[in-house]
Simulated scan of single mutants.
Amino acid sequence: MPYRILTLSPGSTSTKVAVFEGEQTLMKSNVRHDPVELQGFDAAADQLQYRIDTVLAELAKAGIQLDSIDAFSGYCGGMGPTVGGIFAIDQNVCDHVLSCGMNHPAILGAPILFDFARRTGKPAFAVNQPDTDELEDVARITGYPGIYRKSHVHCLNQKECAIRFAASLGRRYEEVNVIVAHVGGGLSVAAHRKGRMIDTNDVIEGSGPFAPNRSGDVPAKPVVALAFSGSHDRREIDAVIGKAGGLKGLLGTDDALEIDRRIEAGDAWAKLVFEAMAYQTAKAIGAFSVALEGRVDGIVLTGGVSHDEAFTSYVKERVGWIAPVAVYAGDFEMEGAAAGAVRALEGSEAVMTYTGRPSWAGFSFEAAPADVEA
């Protein structure tokens, strides 16, 4: 019998929950929370029982019993940098994420899943958690002393799409070199070499191509001048970098369909800006082909904007000479979390024990390697 897996992803204003049984999706829901209700919580951690109740209510609507689930898996923020893969969610994971200082509901992923695991006696897993950091040391160096690059990308969807692409070649993820570009609200591009993301941009810190609502790489001195001009405070500048820049800042919208309509109506500025985002994406893919020394088995385009044929065609025209381009439009995070849980249950991928020790904590060559137990 196929395994039945519950997956979830707590967001700032919603909770995604899905149940899969083999290849079948039994239910999939994105519950939007009442802002007034959310305002009643002082901190994200205080929402734990509220979010648990939300998931249980969705299961009840779908007529799915909690004890019918074979394993629980999902988006687990706050774990800090680790290698990619599957971690067993235990009390240590929950204690860490709830005390990590991060005030975002993503930290509730592990505690919710662990609550369900304790109720049912079934396992809970964190699969390719969002702070996964597998960068090679050479990729971390910047020209500014004391500032190093880290990895904050759409890891779960990145790796799931790379796994699917490898399977389309009849190979395993650990056997291929793939460049994946996830283009959603944020935009992450990563070089995957034999099962590890060896180089990426950082969607949290603001590097890489500009995105539908993020600024991406911007010349540093003008930003410094803006920060000290007195005309903008830090919150305003951070907002442009992280949620109000990119297409939204330049065109007033991050809706690709709306931008397509403007382009069709003859809006030359909209066309130039949209092509610039595609151009920067293609340029990043080209740069990461260097990280893989030109040995690239494939390029994958994913994320919501990859539904847009104008965008994908523009990118394909510029990078198709590097390697074949495959499009996996949309978001496969829930499917990726479920697939990881199945691999754990089947024993085809090792399940690691989380220790809280980071996969990278600075350039101290006397430091012991990351403490991860298979």
Rank of each mutant, 00 (worst) to 15 (best):
Q24C: 13
Y148I: 08
S29N: 15
L187A: 07
G249H: 01
F363W: 13
T13K: 08
C161M: 10
L292Q: 02
A368G: 15
L6N: 07
I86G: 05
I52Y: 00
A350S: 14
A124N: 03
T54F: 03
V203F: 05
L345Y: 11
V300Q: 02
G320C: 04
F116K: 08
A326V: 12
G340D: 08
L113K: 04
V218E: 07
P105G: 02
G362Y: 01
F165A: 05
A117C: 10
P219C: 14
G294A: 11
D53G: 13
L56P: 00
A339V: 13
G22S: 02
I259T: 00
R214Q: 04
V127T: 11
Y50P: 00
L59W: 03
I204P: 01
K316Q: 14
T132Q: 13
A191Y: 04
T7I: 06
N213S: 14
L292G: 05
L38T: 02
Y328P: 04
V240Q: 07
G286F: 01
S188Q: 02
G143L: 08
P111W: 01
G101R: 01
R119W: 12
P105A: 07
H33F: 05
A361P: 05
K61D: 13
Y314A: 07
P130F: 12
G63Y: 13
I86Q: 03
E236W: 09
G252I: 04
D90C: 03
E205L: 14
E293I: 12
G246S: 01
P111T: 06
D70S: 03
A370F: 09
E349R: 05
E175I: 14
V300F: 01
S229C: 05
T312S: 07
L26G: 07
K248G: 07
A88M: 13
Q158M: 11
M79T: 08
L292P: 02
G340F: 10
K283G: 00
D217N: 12
P209Q: 03
M352F: 14
Q158G: 02
G304C: 09
R171Y: 09
P111A: 09
V319F: 02
H307T: 04
A44W: 03
Q129P: 15
F116Q: 04
G246H: 01
G195A: 07
T132I: 12
Q280Y: 06
N213Y: 11
H307E: 08
L251M: 05
P358N: 06
D53L: 08
A287R: 12
H154E: 01
V240E: 10
D46F: 15
A190W: 02
C100P: 06
T13S: 09
A310E: 00
A326D: 06
G246A: 05
A344W: 06
A368Q: 15
A162M: 07
G249E: 00
A323E: 06
E349P: 05
I86N: 03
F125R: 11
Y144C: 14
L169E: 02
E366K: 15
C76R: 00
